[in-house]
């Protein structure tokens, strides 16, 4: 059944939305793209008064097929590795011009954990007043799903294929947040598309602090992770609820907040939805060991960050996504 549209046309409605949307429709992200969603949510939380520096990657490619652009904010892509430095330059320029416009850098995990890490470290060390947002989809998706240092242990990618000698990626996911924290910047946090209110709150906090801020946003990739298009949020939520992707906030390198997990799910709830972990469900002792390994990694996170909820609250893994009649979720 197709519903009647209201009297205003979609293009009229689009112009009259109650919040500014920095990322417009018509971009060429895959169906169900978590990064497109994450970028949309982040730019919404930022508002229009910003300059954005964007690293090479899916987000860059799917938003800027000349002569079209999906951006409604001033935006610059330079190269893969230099995003934090470009943002540093923008910030220096605005400071010199005494303008208060915010500067935000966007990068994927490849551009952040790997090739852009040095420039990022420099930006953080110099404490530029820049919010760096990393959209973490845990592999080089733009080039066809190659492993990055952010790819989880044991995950399949085209360069970490499982086979007779290997069970997916041999190495661990890089603990980037700890590296970031070691710069003792004013604010660093992990976030996810599964908890949009929490994400927006963190973005606002990151913009509010004077100095460098960093947020890594877990952004599901249906294509690279091998889950159904519709399940991105489900998968991302389970990443948090299993303890595999802890939601934490750090100020000056110290842990100041963590989203408690009210009901801790076994990691298999998360892994089972994704083809990149399919080989771990084979009837094979090594697969079983790797499953146990991933469970222990989650347990370790839960222990280290104290993630197990003591009692239910509205900011824990069950409460943080609660919706209200009438919308406009808190934060």
């Amino acid at each position: 059944m197709t519903l009647e549209q209201p009297t205003k046309s979609c293009s009229e409605l689009r112009r009259a939305q109650p919040v500014f949307r920095g990322l417009e429709a018509g971009h060429r992200a895959c169906q169900g793209c978590g990064q497109a969603l994450a970028a949309r949510l982040v730019t919404e939380a930022i508002g229009p008064d910003v300059l954005i520096a964007n690293a090479t990657g899916c987000l860059e490619v799917f938003t800027t097929a000349w002569p079209q652009s999906a951006w409604r904010v001033p935006w610059l892509h330079s190269v893969f590795a230099n995003t934090a430095a470009v943002a540093s330059g923008m910030e220096a320029a605005l400071k010199a011009q005494k303008r208060n416009t915010k500067v935000v850098a966007f990068g994927g995990d490849g551009g952040t954990f790997d090739i852009g890490l040095q420039a990022l470290s420099g930006m953080l060390e110099r404490n530029h007043n820049v919010l760096y947002v990393c959209f973490d989809n845990e592999a080089y998706m733009n080039t066809g799903v190659q492993r990055s240092s952010s790819t989880p242990h044991a995950a399949e990618t085209t360069t970490s294929p499982p086979g007779r000698e290997r069970a997916g990626k041999r190495h661990l996911k890089k603990d980037l947040v700890t590296i970031i924290a070691a710069h003792r910047i004013p604010y660093a946090a992990t976030a996810t598309v599964a908890y949009p209110s929490d994400l927006r709150k963190k973005v606002r906090r990151g913009l509010q602090v004077e100095g460098a801020a960093f947020i890594v946003v877990h952004s599901p990739c249906p294509l690279g992770w091998g889950h159904e298009n519709a399940l991105g949020i489900e998968v991302a939520r389970l990443a948090v609820q299993t303890g595999l992707y802890p939601m934490i906030e750090l100020e000056r390198g110290e842990l100041v907040g963590a989203m408690p997990i009210r009901e801790v799910h076994p990691v298999t709830d998360y892994l089972r939805l994704q083809d990149r972990f399919k080989h771990l469900f084979a009837d094979d002792p090594r697969a079983r060991e790797e499953l146990e390994h991933l469970q222990e990694l989650a347990n370790h996170n839960i222990e280290v960050y104290g993630l197990r909820a003591q009692k239910p609250d509205r900011f824990d893994s069950e409460g943080a996504d609660t919706v209200r009649r009438g919308g406009m979720r808190t934060a």
Partner: peptide, 13 residues
């Protein structure tokens, strides 16, 4: 090769 804002609306996905 700069682009104007929001012009992706021309691309009907």
């Amino acid at each position: 090769a700069f682009a104007k804002p929001g012009t992706s609306l021309q691309f009907k996905t």
